[in-house]
């Protein structure tokens, strides 16, 4: 732990002004935003992040933490706590995949602290990233290499990686947001903007130290999830090494709208195996307009994993990913038909 300065941002405009030097949120940016603190403090204690200035955004909770369902969809303030959203009756009834993905994440203590905005910006759990005594980590030290490619990589990603970084995006909720085609509101020095959630995280390129498309000083203020029939018939399957308080080795968020036995619409988000929050578009296309049989679910799972690259210890995730998608599809199929019509 190193000495650092600490300032509270009383409102959004001050937050944006104080946060001009946050860069794009890379670990070595001299200024870091603090919301729930469950990632930042952790990485500061590990000496992975050594900010000179910490800007506490907690006062923004006053205006940016509400849960607002409407006929169009669900608006969630980015400073709402994970636990608060997971327990909300409308979220549980009409967007079960959101509630489940939050409820199955982390521990009760962390869910009580962590905010939604911070959750989607959670850093990878790559053990080489999280220990600065490893010299080679392109995510921490651009150009230094990747110790995980030939190292202990059982927990690493198989989808969307390249040789410069095979870290996986560890979160759950973002996977559900991918499936429900969520949108986000941002406010930054250049004003407000609105993005599809799917474009928040960067794809793997030669710059793994840049994880998102956030601009310097930008703060996530809200999430919007459109109201759909498939959101109501949605499920989050999280496969992990122990029953609770553990990251996924594979997860799937499936949202399904059926027309009798025929898939009218399906959305599939994947976690625990991808470089960034992942959407299995080709699997969705394969399933749409056809009966959802075991064989179709398996074929979709297979299709979703096309292009996956194992690095040895994580090879199993290619098969496990397929099985996880199958399981989530069949669980969604078994759910009662939703009340909301398309």
């Amino acid at each position: 732990m190193r000495p650092f300065s600490y300032a509270r941002a009383p409102d959004l405009s001050q937050a944006v002004r104080l946060g001009q030097h946050t860069g794009q949120g890379q670990t070595d940016a001299p200024v870091q935003f603090l919301a729930g603190g469950t990632t930042l403090y952790d990485l500061m204690k590990l000496d992975v992040m050594v900010p000179e200035h910490v800007i506490d955004l907690t006062p923004l909770r006053g205006g940016h933490a509400s849960i607002t369902p409407s006929a169009d969809g669900l608006r969630l303030g980015a400073f709402a706590r994970m636990a608060q959203v997971a327990a909300h009756p409308v979220v549980r009834a009409d967007y079960p995949v959101l509630a489940e993905s939050l409820q199955l994440a982390a521990s009760a203590q962390i869910r009580n602290m962590a905010t939604l905005g911070g959750n989607v910006l959670q850093r990878t759990r790559c053990t080489y990233f999280r220990d600065p005594s490893w010299a080679a980590c392109n995510k921490r030290n651009p150009g230094s290499g990747c110790a995980a490619v030939d190292g202990f990589n059982r927990n690493h990603a198989v989808l969307g990686t390249n040789a410069s970084c095979i870290a996986q995006y560890p979160g759950d909720w973002a996977v559900a947001l991918m499936a429900l085609e969520a949108e986000i509101d941002l406010v930054g020095p250049l004003g407000a903007r609105h993005l599809p959630f799917a474009s928040l995280h960067r794809s793997a390129d030669k710059q793994p130290h840049l994880e998102t498309n956030l601009r310097p000083g930008e703060v996530i203020t809200a999430f919007f999830i459109p109201a759909t029939a498939y959101a109501q018939r949605s499920v989050y399957v999280k496969v992990r090494d122990r029953a609770s308080y553990e990251f996924a080795i594979a997860s799937a968020a499936v949202a399904l709208e059926m027309d009798g036995d025929i898939v009218r619409q399906v959305r599939i988000g994947l976690g625990g195996m991808a470089y960034r929050p992942w959407r299995a578009h080709n699997a969705e296309t394969m399933l749409t307009g056809k009966p959802l049989t075991d064989a179709a679910a398996e074929a979709a799972g297979q299709a979703a994993m096309e292009g996956a690259v194992g690095r040895g210890q994580n090879d199993y995730k290619i098969a496990l990913g397929r099985q996880t998608i199958m399981r989530a599809l069949m669980q969604a199929k078994a759910m009662p038909a939703p009340s909301r019509k398309a």
């Binding site: 759990r125 053990t127 080489y128 220990d131 490893w134 059982r154 609770s244």
Partner: peptide, 28 residues
Amino acid sequence: HEATEVDPASARLINTNLADYMVPVNAD
């Protein structure tokens, strides 16, 4: 659950913390 992982090339221990070195939780 439990296994200390050893990096094959460097002989360094990988998961030297209680997040990555797994032990059962109550739910297990």
